[in-house]
Design a protein around this nucleic acid. Structure first.
Length: 269
DNA sequence: ATAGTCACCTGAGCGC
DNA sequence: TGCGCTCAGGTGACTA
């Protein structure tokens, strides 16, 4: 599932192919994604200036605006040969002034594409997002301040995009394991020291995942079509009832806010 | 303001 | 072989 490392992997994969290129056309085979996909006619002839990432959104900045792409849960964005046959879940192609098309494949159709004219930072999907977990403002002090007085489970706070972005279920589980914190613990009851450990763990797990191209559980592939290799590094995610690698205790599987949660009852307090 | 729940969508995996 | 069920999950929208 595309979380931040997968989106970043995609960004790095497609960037060299499309920067400086002109959008010459598109095919919308299935415009019914999370929100209806509408490409204005004026997009034709726009040139890609930069490819950025904000949270789990990819920003394809053009001369006068940006395409805002979200991969949802099952989406991938890849460069394909112009003549490659589109499959059942290949919903959108964007054509450039070369022999490749940028293709959005998304079986579950939770992804989205918007064209935003002008500054994408003011777009309604982007403007209320929290801090970047790899940015300088995300640290123990920040976590401690936003957690103050909150009774919500720390795992839910970590996954709240208005607080910090890009931490989905996999990496939330893994970060809490690394920091030795129980997922269900009320966020406001965690001290500054442990908040610092947690912020560090989030950063660490995300950075390591980016280095190996993200986590491929089923069908994620990066911009160049390669799967990610972080899966063997997972300590708890998907391992309920199996022994903890660190102490051998049986890992516990619970649900927090409808989300599968796994932790070690001995290593995490 | 905060917390909890639901909907959207499809494919995989399972029991029968 | 196939049916029906459950699960997975990001996130906006809704309710209490």
């Amino acid at each position: 599932m595309p979380e931040l490392p997968e989106v970043e992997t995609t960004r790095r994969g497609i960037e060299p192919w499309i920067v400086g290129r002109e959008i010459t056309g598109w095919s919308l085979r299935q415009p019914r994604l999370r929100w209806p996909v509408v490409f204005p006619e004026r997009l034709r002839g726009e040139r890609i200036v930069r490819v950025l990432r904000r949270a789990k959104y990819l920003l394809l900045e053009t001369t006068s605006g940006a395409l805002i792409v979200h991969l949802g849960m099952s989406g991938s964005l890849r460069l394909m040969p112009l003549d490659s046959v589109a499959g059942r879940h290949d919903h959108v192609d964007i054509q450039f002034d070369h022999e490749r098309v940028l293709r959005l494949t998304d079986p579950r159709r939770f992804g989205s594409i918007h064209y935003c004219e002008g500054d994408w930072r003011t777009h309604w999907l982007i403007k209320d997002l929290g801090v970047e977990p790899l940015g300088p403002e995300f640290n123990g002090g920040f976590l401690w301040r936003v957690a103050k007085g909150r009774r919500v489970a720390v795992k839910q706070l970590l996954m709240d995009a208005r607080v910090v972005v890009g931490v989905g279920n996999i990496y939330a589980n893994e970060s809490l394991f690394l920091a030795g914190i129980r997922p269900r613990l009320a966020a406001g009851r965690i001290g500054l020291l442990r908040c610092t450990a947690l912020a560090g763990a989030v950063r660490d797990v995300l950075e390591r995942a980016i280095l190996v191209g993200g986590t491929t559980l089923r069908d994620f592939v990066g911009g160049t079509g390669a799967p990610g290799h972080f899966r063997p590094s997972l300590n708890v995610y998907g391992r309920a009832d199996q022994p903890c690698y660190q102490c051998g205790t049986q890992l516990k599987g619970i649900r927090i806010g409808q989300r599968a949660t796994v932790y070690c009852p001995k290593c995490q307090r």
